[in-house]
Design a protein around this nucleic acid. Structure first.
Lengths: 246, 246
DNA sequence: CGAGCCGTTGAGGGGATTCAAGCTCAGTGG
DNA sequence: CCACTGAGCTTGAATCCCCTCAACGGCTCG
């Protein structure tokens, strides 16, 4: 949890602090956990939610630690890791803007994965007890919560069917396709390190490197400094079709 | 949905029909969705829940179809399948006794996977609207629901880290370990067909066959007629340790 | 500048796939 | 009754994809 945490409460009254209107004006509000709450609801919660910023590779929480809060991703990518006791880790899922992570906390459970920032990440940290309170009063919240849970479940299952199936090249292409969904304005995606690609797709760094290089030569991918790249979406589609996978 | 469905309502008053006390006396009640409801709650629901029995390979529901109900597994195993448009399917998760399946229905969503019976399966079919009603009145239910969702999510993620990681033999051993958790009294497990093992572990039928035969020769597995087998748990543990995976 | 991390590329070997054949067993119909 | 068939399982041989082992270059940083 080596992050810059701004515990400054977020007040909503006009003018004031630059983050005053943060919750109400939050860009992801409509897709985020509290998006369904009205302003009255917001008044009750905005003082307890902490805004956080994490650097790449900073951990949001550790597997096994007590779950005291859930997090909404305002910006950036987070990966979920598990490692077997003999050392080799596997990345089992990634989450992005608008996703809710650490739901286990709502059940008073320890976190089931290591959650690590891929890019710089902006989070809202929501204490477990706060959600409990809200869940009692209104009932818009449970549904929204269930939605998050289902979304995470779906993501986990399609991780199996897309990223753990077939030859290495196809798996990589599927990964790129998925990363493209979190792309910036200019088709700039976050490109994992080679060993991270390996942990995601169950392959060695060497294989990951070879395949990335191949895609670079084919023009599907153009590397840019700092773990990022530009994707040619058309070429990617073509490559996927050539794999016999749409 | 080619099943024997007993739409006979399940009444709770004493004596009466053999299934009269079904809900109240349900063996899996403590672990099932409505386990937390008291008798009053049960009175309100038992008439709307249908008891079903499905034969092996019967489908519970199809991916994409309208989700009108969730199901509790009273007995047996259910697998979740996805198939890409060029034909090859992948089994992404299995669920067993006490698990809730088809939660998407609660969100008014189509089912995200094909759900297919592995063994003979006994289900309780719970209409979506019924859960909605209950969720409004009491609030024990939402928490129980969240628990199910989290359990499914955890299962999906560990499917990636256990069954989609490493060499074929280790993946198969992990699968057996998992199937052993659903074993009958005598360590008799449901053993998938070779092509089903292939769909679970992303390998060919031939590889699956070779590995199963090898384990049979090593005494880890003893085949018995009808897609089942007896496991030597000690030998399994030993084999897993030899793989460098606990 | 050397150390270390990260990425790349090559050579060789091994594990899984592909292609192929043969087996058992249940169901079918001559 | 028994050949015939097809589905499921097994085994073999050849191929290939990916891993292992290795070396090297670029880069940052102490």
């Amino acid at each position: 949890m080596d992050a810059r945490v701004q515990t400054i409460p977020i007040y909503r009254q006009a003018g004031a602090h630059p983050q005053a209107l943060a919750c109400a004006a939050c860009e992801v509000r409509s897709t985020a956990l509290f998006g369904v709450l009205d302003d009255v609801g917001l008044d009750r919660i905005h003082t307890q939610i902490a805004s956080m910023t994490l650097a790449p590779d900073a951990t949001v929480y550790d597997r096994g630690s007590a779950g005291l809060a859930v997090f909404t991703i305002r910006e950036g990518l987070v990966r979920f890791e598990r490692s077997s006791q003999h050392g080799d880790r596997r990345i089992v899922r990634i989450a992005g803007r608008g996703d809710l992570i650490g739901q286990e906390a709502l059940l008073n459970r320890p976190y089931t994965d290591d959650a690590v920032a891929c890019t710089e990440v902006h989070l809202c940290r929501i204490p477990r007890v706060l959600v409990d309170q809200l869940a009692q009063g209104r009932d818009a919240l449970p549904r929204e919560l269930m939605l998050r849970w289902q979304k995470a479940l779906d993501a986990a299952e399609s991780w199996v069917s897309d990223l753990s199936t077939g030859p290495a090249r196809r798996r990589l292409l599927h990964l790129l396709e998925r990363l493209a969904q979190h792309a910036g304005a200019d088709d700039a995606i976050w490109l994992p390190r080679r060993d991270e690609i390996g942990a995601m797709l169950d392959m060695t760094v060497e294989t990951a490197s070879r395949l990335v290089s191949a895609l670079r030569r084919e023009g599907v991918l153009t590397l840019t400094p700092g773990r990022s790249a530009v994707l040619d979406r058309v070429a990617l589609r073509a490559a996927l079709l050539a794999e016999g996978a749409a």
